[in-house]
Computed example of a mutant assay.
Amino acid sequence: MKTALSIQTAQPTEYAPMLAVWERSVRATHHFLTEADIEFFRPLVREAFGSGRQLVCAHDTTQTVLGFAGVADGKLEMLFVDPDWRGQGVGGRLLRYAVTELGARALDVNEQNEGALGFYQKAGFVITGRSPLDGLGKPFPLLHMQLGL
């Protein structure tokens, strides 16, 4: 890992950097999305930050947002890491925090995002179902996962 890492509750002043991390992450990992899809999802993601989810950010020593996670009702609803920090433990730390501190036990992952699927499986999540469309009715199949059945 490049530097020390802390996880803290996200503040509204961090929503803009979080959205930038989301977009950089999606562009690096969600190759199945078009530019129009990213434009469609961007305001929805921004709105989701203020909608009652428990949000946490991973920061380096300069308080730069390296990644973030959001949990609601025991479900991990978002976990994104800046692509410059992938493979350096940020996602794993965020996921462990979401599970141990925020009570995440379930999640959905895009079926086409094989890297994320493997990441969650390695962490002990198992596939419990599949939906052919995402939550907005778009043709992005979701795999439903739960922690260690």
Rank of each mutant, 00 (worst) to 15 (best):
G91V: 05
P12F: 01
L149M: 10
R27K: 08
Q146C: 12
R27D: 03
F40E: 10
H30K: 05
G148V: 09
E114P: 02
H59C: 15
T9A: 09
Y120V: 09
R53A: 14
P141Y: 04
F49L: 09
G91H: 02
L33P: 07
R93D: 04
V45K: 06
R86I: 09
A123C: 04
V45E: 13
D82F: 13
T61N: 01
A98F: 02
T9R: 09
T64A: 14
V45G: 12
L142R: 14
G115D: 01
G137E: 14
T100P: 03
A116H: 10
L79K: 11
Q146G: 05
L76E: 10
T64W: 06
L76D: 06
W85H: 01
R105P: 03
G103E: 14
W22F: 05
A72Y: 06
A48P: 09
G91L: 07
H144F: 13
S131P: 03
Q8F: 01
W22N: 04
Y120H: 10
N113C: 09
G52W: 15
Q146S: 11
T3N: 07
L33G: 07
A16R: 08
V126E: 10
L5D: 05
A28C: 04
T29E: 01
T100R: 15
W85F: 01
K138W: 13
P17H: 07
G70Q: 10
R93E: 08
G103D: 15
L117H: 07
G74R: 01
E111G: 08
L107A: 11
F125Q: 12
H30W: 03
Q8D: 06
A20L: 13
V26D: 04
L94V: 14
G124Q: 04
T13N: 05
G87I: 06
L142S: 14
G67E: 09
G129H: 05
L66W: 05
Y120K: 06
G52Y: 11
I7A: 14
Q8K: 08
R130S: 01
